[in-house]
């Protein structure tokens, strides 16, 4: 008994077991249950086969939500990977003064609640000519815009909210990656006459790749599963012409607002498949699987 308790072989499993149990209990069981529910009409307690899924294919609103989520994900990837990487390099460089101050400044938005921020952003994007963004437009002599009623302008609003909030967090990730690069490499490069830009492209970028892949993976998931930002910006899950509707928003609308839990589970399952597919492709392309094997 004592042997068993102090066994070095068993110890690691004991240590990871709280996590494994949590995953099994709070992840795997709900997922399986969700898949089963997706083949039912929960309210009428009937099995309906693939009905929910075939309805999804012809559901224009679901396709719109899917498209919105993809658009948002693509937008956040384009803005929230290159720029934070660049900013992190700047903060990491010796030329930068008061780097710590800027680090904290960038990070502060991540500490604010989305609920508060979203509400304030909504008011800033108000329709009246007295709202902040319309006042700014007014300074340039432009007439007020109905920000949250147009597809383009509300997409801009969502992206701005995302950038405001997540830039600092991503900078921290990249900064951690950059700081693990030995300074000798840069010294050697500068002796060989490489410019700062060349150093960034040839040394920093390849060496922070693991960080980039990590940020990419979580950003894809975060982008596709975005809900709260849109929910706060539009003061609820409903937006004109569904311009702010995301996959999770649609799941919520069907499952909770319309009590169609089976259908909502089908939506959730599709989201799971989409996120997995996108990420596996991405990890294949970036060669992460290969590295693991080596």
């Amino acid at each position: 008994m004592k042997k068993l308790f102090y066994s070095k072989k068993i110890a690691p499993y004991v240590f990871i077991c709280p996590f494994v149990i949590t995953v099994l209990l709070f992840w795997l069981v709900p997922i399986c249950n969700g898949v089963l529910l997706s083949f039912q009409d929960v309210l009428k307690e009937q099995w309906v086969g693939f009905d929910n899924y075939s309805r999804l294919l012809t559901d224009a609103i679901f396709l719109k939500a899917l498209w919105n989520s993809f658009k948002y994900m693509a937008g956040t990837l384009l803005l929230l990977i290159p720029f934070p990487m660049l900013f992190a390099s700047l903060l990491n460089s010796k030329l930068m003064r008061k780097a710590d101050f800027f680090k904290s400044i960038y990070f502060i938005p991540a500490l604010t609640s989305v609920v508060v921020a979203g509400t304030i952003f909504r008011l800033m994007y108000g329709e009246a000519s007295t709202s902040l963004f319309n006042q700014i437009l007014g300074l340039f002599g432009m007439s007020p815009i109905k920000w949250l009623k147009g597809a383009g302008t509300s997409f801009f609003a969502l992206l701005l909210l995302a950038c405001w909030r997540w830039t600092g967090v991503n900078i921290l990730y990249f900064l951690a990656g950059l700081q693990s690069i030995p300074t000798e490499l840069y010294e050697a490069a500068s002796i060989d006459g490489a410019s700062k830009w060349q150093q960034f492209v040839k040394i920093s970028m390849p060496l922070v790749k693991p960080t980039t892949v990590y940020v990419l993976t979580i950003s894809i998931y975060a982008g596709l599963s975005m809900f709260l930002e849109s929910n706060m910006l539009f003061k609820g899950n409903n937006s004109p012409n569904n311009i702010g509707l995301t996959i999770v928003g649609y799941l919520y609308r069907q499952g909770v607002e319309k009590r169609a839990l089976g259908y909502a589970c089908a939506v959730g399952f599709i989201l799971l498949i989409v996120v997995m597919a996108v990420n596996i492709i991405q990890l294949k392309i970036t060669g992460t699987f290969k590295e693991e094997r080596e």
Binding site: K146, K149, N238, S239, P240, N241, N242, K258
Partner: peptide, 16 residues
């Protein structure tokens, strides 16, 4: 659902 569709999509499409 009708209410939801009208207040989000139909009326906005027509009048906005």
């Amino acid at each position: 659902s009708i209410n939801n569709e009208f207040c989000n999509v139909t009326l906005n499409s027509i009048f906005e």
